[in-house]
Write a protein that binds this DNA or RNA. Structure first.
Lengths: 198, 198
DNA sequence: AGGTATATTGAACGCTGTTCAATTAAATTT
DNA sequence: AAATTTAATTGAACAGCGTTCAATATACCT
C-alpha cells in the first residue's frame, strides 16, 4: 500500500510504545521482536523504522512510560505520611513493590544502553524528579542542609533502595530472611535518617 | 575431523571461558557471538554445545571468573586497614573501581538470567563470600550483634554500594558532582557505621 | 482528471543461536 | 598389524533476528 495516514506520526509512535510496553510486560524485553511489535500495531516491520531509529530507541521510550508509573507510585506513597522518615520509607517500599510487580519493566529500565544510541531527554528529567521527591523530604528534615548535601543524601539513599531492588530482582541477595529487600530498606532509611541531622 | 583429544573436556571448558571473558572485556556481552568464541578457541561453533548447554551457560561461567577478580580486589582493599570502618569503605571503593574498570564484566554480572537456565552453584558461593567480608567487619564493630542482624547489615551496606556502582555504570545518577559514586559510598558507610552500635 | 508527494510494503541481506547427521581419528579388540 | 568400535568434531542446515530500500499504492494538490 501507499500512504494510509490512519494516524499521525505521533499517534503511531505512541501506539507503538504502548504495544511494546504490553509485550515487555508479558514476555520480558529479551523475547520482544520488531516483528511482534509491528503485528501488534497492525503494520509491517519496515514502517517502525520510519518513526523510530531502531528497536533500542523504542525500548527507551518504553522506559519513559515505565518511569511515569514508578514516579506515580512514589508520589502516592509519599502522600501517605506527613513525617519525612515515614514518607521516605514508604517511597522506598513503593520502589521495591514496583520492581517486584513489574519485573520485566524494571529490568529494561536499568539495562545498559549501547554507547551509540542516545537516551530521550525525557528519561533524564524523569529520573531526576524521582530524586527530587527524596530531596524534598531531606530538606524538610534539615532545612539548614546545603543543596549539594541534600542532593548527595538523596542519591545515597536511593542507591541503597535501588541496590536492594536490583539485587533482589536478580536473586543475588542470598538472605535467609524472606522479604529481605524490605528489611534492608527499613534499616537503610532508619539509620540514615537518624544520622541526617549532623 | 573425528576425535582430536588435544584437550580434556575440562580444559576445553576453561579455555572457552577464558576466551569468552577476553571477548566480553573487549566488546561487551551484547557483541559476543558463539562463532567468535569458537574461532578464538580454534574449534567450530557446534563443538561448544558438547561442553556447555548454551551461550548463556558460558556467560554464567564467565561471571564466576569475574567474581573471583572482584573478590580478590575486595580482600586486598580490606587488608589495607585494621579499622573496620576504613576497611568497609576501602572495600566499597574497590567495588566501585571494579565496576568502572571492568564495565562489561560488571554489566554481565548483574544481567538478569532467563528463568529456564540455572546458575552454576559456585556463583552463589562467591557472592555469599563477598557479603561475608562485610559481615566480618560489622561483627568486629559490634561483637554483641546477632548473626541475623550482621547478615542484614552487610546486605544493607552492600545494596548501597552496589546501587551506586550500578546507577553510575548506567549513567543514571544525574549528579552535578564528579565522582558522585565515591561520595555516595563515603556518606553511606560513615553514616551507617556511626549508627551501627545501637 | 492528472500529477506529485509520501506512507507503507515486502522482499532481501547478513547476521544470530542451535541442532544433528556425517565424518574422521583415536582407542580397543582381534 | 589389521580390523573394529567408539566418540570428538565438523559443517551444513534451520528458523529466526534487526535492518534497509526499491517498488507500490494511496492521499493530496492543481
Amino acid at each position: 500500500m501507499g500512504r494510509r495516514s490512519d494516524h499521525t506520526k505521533e499517534e503511531l509512535q505512541q501506539l507503538t510504545i504502548e504495544a511494546t510496553l504490553a509485550l515487555v510486560k508479558e514476555q520480558g524485553v529479551a523475547q520482544v521482536t520488531v516483528r511482534q511489535i509491528a503485528e501488534a500495531v497492525g503494520y509491517t516491520p519496515g514502517m517502525l523504522y520510519s518513526i523510530f531509529d531502531n528497536l533500542q530507541a523504542i525500548f527507551l521510550h518504553v522506559n519513559v512510560a515505565s518511569l511515569k508509573g514508578l514516579y506515580a507510585a512514589c508520589v502516592k506513597a509519599q502522600k501517605s505520611s506527613k513525617q519525612p522518615e515515614a514518607a521516605i520509607t514508604a517511597m522506598g517500599m513503593a520502589y521495591l513493590k514496583f520492581a517486584e510487580k513489574n519485573t520485566h519493566q524494571f529490568e529494561l529500565l536499568f539495562q545498559p544502553v549501547p554507547p551509540d544510541v542516545s537516551r530521550p531527554l525525557e528519561l533524564g528529567v524523569r529520573i531526576r524528579s524521582l530524586f527530587e521527591l527524596v530531596e524534598l523530604e531531606l530538606k524538610a528534615l534539615d532545612p539548614n542542609a546545603t543543596d549539594a548535601a541534600v542532593a548527595l543524601g538523596a542519591r545515597t539513599l536511593w542507591s541503597g533502595v535501588h541496590g536492594a531492588a536490583a539485587l533482589n530482582a536478580t536473586n543475588q541477595l542470598y538472605s535467609e530472611q524472606k522479604n529481605a529487600d524490605r528489611l534492608i530498606v527499613q534499616m537503610l532509611v532508619s539509620r540514615f535518617v537518624d544520622s541526617w541531622q549532623r
